[in-house]
Nucleic acid binder design. Structure first.
Lengths: 143, 143
DNA sequence: ATTGTAATTGAGACTCATTCTCAATTATAA
DNA sequence: TTATAATTGAGAATGAGTCTCAATTACAAT
């Protein structure tokens, strides 16, 4: 994401562009998969750039509110994020036998969720759907 | 749940039946909806029974491993549980602001998931759907 | 470019859920 | 009843995340 776009995003929120925020943005977008605040913070330090832990947490909140990244889960080890930008949303099927994870996407499923949210006056920003069961291969093995 | 069944459950895990564990079990099963460890702990104290916070946390872990209760979510305000038995399946909306959890159920949603599984040759046995976002109240506050 | 001012930063104090420690207690098999 | 291994509880420790506030900085106005 470009400096100018980011600046504009911040402006709309009455916030200022700072080096720290930009460093954090870039690092957050650099991850293809999941990441957590602490890892991001440590990697920023390692690369010589500077941004405090406090700023990392503050900026990640901003980025989430802007829809640039999203919270994937809260685990025992903290919050997990992933970038939204340039990432197609998908859900997961998890085979409890072999541990295989299949990704899938259903427009229909997304639409229905939107409708449900609308009905309840809930503003959904992300979701996690995990279907657990047995994949094709393991079903055959069971027989 | 009965004392003997519980004892048996513990035995299978090489664990002992204790008053504390039983008090915690009973209290956990007494909630129709969601509950959290701290609330459960305080209510146990209030009713004159005794069980330390440490035991509450330890026992809730055991109960989750046994499938008696399940983790509904981890929020900024802690872990939320609900009992598994005698509970119709439903999905959750989690307000990332206030931590409120709304339950919902959609036949349509369930059907579509079945179809998706069928197409992929996947035998689904359970699923978790969590929609994260802002509830009605918090949406108003944001404005 | 300079200045005024409000936003931002960082270090570390703080909070709060949860886990750990370990001596005292207790369930259970022998 | 006894031996012993599991369990308990009080409070210390941990760790993610937030808060405080003085110093710094972005940026609009001049």
């Amino acid at each position: 994401m470009d400096k100018d776009i980011f600046t504009k995003l911040l402006r709309e929120r009455g916030q200022r562009f700072t080096k720290e925020r930009f460093v954090i943005l870039q690092k957050a977008l650099s991850y293809d998969g999941h990441f957590d605040p602490e890892t991001l913070y440590l990697q920023i330090r390692k690369t010589g750039s500077k941004a405090s832990r406090a700023s990392v947490y503050r900026t990640l909140s901003v980025l989430r509110e802007c829809g640039v990244i999203q919270q994937v889960a809260k685990t025992e080890h903290g919050t997990v994020y992933e970038r939204t930008y340039g990432h197609r949303h998908h859900d997961h099927m998890l085979c409890v036998q072999c541990g295989d994870i299949l990704e899938f996407y259903s427009e229909e499923l997304e639409k229905i969720q939107e409708n449900i949210c609308k009905k309840q006056g809930f503003q959904g920003s992300s979701h996690t759907l995990e279907i657990r069961g047995y994949c094709k291969k393991c079903r055959k093995k069971k027989k």
